[in-house]
Design a binder for these strands. Structure first.
Lengths: 319, 319
DNA sequence: CGGCGATATGACAGCGCTGTCAATTGGTCC
DNA sequence: GGACCAATTGACAGCGCTGTCATATCGCCG
């Protein structure tokens, strides 16, 4: 016990003993066993994080924010990826719960019933992020993806566009919500037409953007603007326009989603919906720390971090 | 004990009991406690992975390969990021060792002396990846980054270019090795000149590519080709050329590094050095599994996965 | 120099699981 | 029906650490 104390709370042990113990630790190359520590103390100092993808730049700022705000506070951040699969998500949650994290921060609000059951029964505080829901497991920090997509589509309508296409990867729950937002805006304007839809069941990628635009054009009509459900697709669309000699924004307006790093420095700069992903991560980390410290959930269980439109060179000027 | 067996070796219990236990597991949302399991069995089923960045697409395929080859074999993959900092790397290694992983797979070969000491003393098999070294800790799977950069620069020389710039982020150990390869090729050709160097101490990003090209041009001379130490920089350079009205490849050849997803579908398609990152992850996973199963290190402790050049539209045709 | 409170140290149990080995059950054969 | 063997199931200890609470030591005062 004295050794345990000497290592964790040196101030509670006499200087002399502390030195003796440190010497022995070095001599024996002793490393405390976190598994035994966890078992005895019931504290893991671990925050579980579940993201949809480790390879999509969308989660980069978010993960950085979690690191920036949790590591200095002495927490270990355990990140697992679902790779956009409900099955892998359930597995990841199981894996995570086995580690007994002190809180779980998860991307999305549409977990499978079993996944949700696991989370609810676990007793571990859960923060759902990126999207908003009326029925969070515990806490929800996100933005209304449908509303954001609606605003982006509305912006294209306001610029005078009528033939507005949409390009999306259906694999992503956020992208599906955005597709709905686009649909609502177009319906309201009386311009909705299935021929302006191009979606893929595959994971999002730059190449998919070009392919989907190609398909839409080859189906007959050419749109004069496209809303891309993420910036990777938008980049692919931009390249495809260049390849086909379609002038952007003169003949084609492009607006993306998320404001990934390259959007601002593309040529022309890609218009996009700015989502505060770092801020979302920061807030999630802060909330989690407060919950662990106080032992109770905050009363305010739903935070809307909002979004903003950045209309850059890839959309034409107002007429 | 019977429950423990039913969950780990279902074939050793009767089907009836197994069903009953599974039902209870679901009902109770029971998840085994890995800390207790680890303590009792002295097995963690954890492979520690240390990468330089979770946000750089370079590690995406690599991490996917590790997941694909380790998760199905029953291993948990614990990924930590150093964010290109030696200090964070040492911390990550310490954190990892406390978890008693059964093996460690780490990006790079230039660990700090203390980090290396920790790894060597841990008794845990270590696989160093991405680069090659003559003096691996245990096992090394990678490619000669300097040689690859030399080949890329040589390719530009062979196309008849003389004013060849290089653009790099110095934060990345791999990028620094590539810088050397460029230097050697240029020295051999008698064309090395510091005015063709543009580097930043910051993390790589698309925007940095454009900025660095801008700096180089504004310093006076304009190169007729640039070797970018990664594809993000190359993309930034491409956009900057478009912005400045420099025709690619007629007035400027661009070659990148790594063959990230967007390289092939950019317009013009970005020439690049293809690095087999998925293969590298697959090999590392396979080696680790063999070591754990057999309990001994393979005799072949250094595997060169090689590289290849992909000369696409962003470099001019041979004269 | 004894006595007291404060500070430092140590003994013990138990966290949830698994390895070992014993006990039970079930099926088969004479 | 009883004996026997194989297939199942279960009891028990202990992994390395920490929380609790008892014990030892120290510093100070009258």
């Amino acid at each position: 016990m004295t050794v345990s104390r000497a290592l964790r709370r040196p101030d509670m042990v006499s200087a002399k003993l502390h030195d003796r113990i440190q010497a022995a630790v070095r001599e024996l190359a002793y490393v405390p066993d976190v598994a035994a520590s966890r078992l005895a103390s019931n504290r893991t100092h671990t925050i579980g994080v579940i993201v949809s993808s480790l390879t999509n730049g969308v989660f980069a700022d978010y993960i950085n924010a979690l690191h920036d705000n949790l590591l200095p506070a002495g927490y270990q951040v355990l990140i697992l990826s679902t790779r956009y699969s409900a099955e892998e998500e359930e597995k990841a949650i199981g894996t995570l719960l086995g580690q007994h994290p002190e809180a779980i921060i998860i991307v999305g609000v549409d977990q499978s019933p079993h996944a949700r059951h696991l989370l609810e029964r676990s007793g571990v505080p859960v923060v759902q992020t990126f999207q908003l829901t009326d029925d969070p497991i515990d806490i929800n920090v996100g933005l209304d993806q449908r509303e954001a997509a609606y605003a982006a589509t509305k912006a294209l309508l306001d610029l005078g566009h009528r033939k507005i296409g949409v390009i999306a990867s259906k694999l992503d729950a956020r992208a599906r919500a955005r597709l709905e937002g686009y649909g609502r805006a177009m319906h309201e304007a009386g311009l909705y037409d299935e021929k302006w839809l191009a979606t893929t069941p595959q994971q999002t990628a730059v190449i998919a953007g070009g392919q989907l635009l190609g398909e839409m054009i080859e189906r007959g009509d050419r749109p004069e603007a496209v809303f891309c459900c993420d910036d990777l697709l938008a980049l692919g669309v931009l390249f495809e326009c260049q390849r086909r000699g379609i002038a952007v924004p003169e003949e084609m307006s492009i607006i993306g989603f998320n404001n990934l790093e390259f959007a601002a420095c593309a040529y022309p700069a890609l218009a996009t919906v700015v989502t505060p992903r770092y801020e979302m991560g920061r807030l999630a980390a802060e909330i989690v720390r407060k919950i662990i410290e106080s032992g109770e959930l905050p009363s305010d269980n739903r935070i809307d971090v909002g979004f903003s439109l950045e209309l850059r060179g890839s959309v034409r000027r107002p007429q």
